[in-house]
Amino acid sequence: MTTPQESREVALRVADIRYAYGKTVAVDGVSFDVRPGEIFGLLGPNGAGKTTTISIVSGILPPASGQALIFGQDASGGSGKARARMGVVPQDIALYEELTAAENLRFWGRLYGLSGAGLEDAVRRSLDLVGLADRAKARVKTYSGGLKRRLNLAAGLVHSPDLLLLDEPTVGIDPQARLRILDVVRDQARSGRAVLYTSHYLEEAEQICGRLAIIDHGRVLAAGTVAELRRLVGEGPVVRIRGSIDGDGLKALAARCPGVSFLSADGDSASFAARDPDACSGLVRELFRSGLKLDDLRVQEPNLQSVFLKLTGRELRD
């Protein structure tokens, strides 16, 4: 149980929340905090429980147990004050295609109590922020996928929320639009807003998240800064191979190499973590000596992909 004093220090506190769709457990004891000025990432594959977590935090779904506090107030109680401080950007492009961009933003702004000149200012500012000021009067149905994603983000920002919940905001868009959205998100954090950012794009999460939690099957497997998470697989390089492999054989091979640990085998791919470059060289020599038919061999710096591999035994594919 958190004290009001502790709650005031964080924008969002998620404490041991659980939710199930019938017999399928979607969220199983997830906990994390997000502080003002921070981008906190929830990283996991599709179906990991990210959207359900966002739905609970945003008050759409009541948790079966646990609680989500927004600036100290329970999100699930329908608290108007808590919700008014929160901006949600859903994974779906939740906009009215029959209306123009400005009409959409005016509608979402009014729902948060904006009106008159304040509303018009907010609409103009949001459109500027995502670079859509010149398309304000165009109907959304005439927008490309990337423009719709940018407007979707603007609709979550129109009332200047203190906490921003972004559920996979860059799914299915071109790299240019993605960069634009990531820039806006960074700017929001720099201006002191707390951001909860879900994604299954590892590189994206590595780029913008100060801290993140890796989630799979509704559970947080690990949480921390990118550097802290990388350390879970060691400081040394990661060796990835592809070819005709045998998981048990590779485990035995890794055991024969000093300073090498077996990470995972998934289909025709496998990964190893080496303690240092010497251990890495030893592993590579042993792999060639073993007579395995390899199609590919790569030596990489440890990244979130290797962390996910180590934690789940499988790759997180885009």
Partner: peptide
């Protein structure tokens, strides 16, 4: 769902 995240 987006409306349901607003303060109403």
């Amino acid at each position: 769902r987006r409306q349901l995240t607003a303060p109403l």
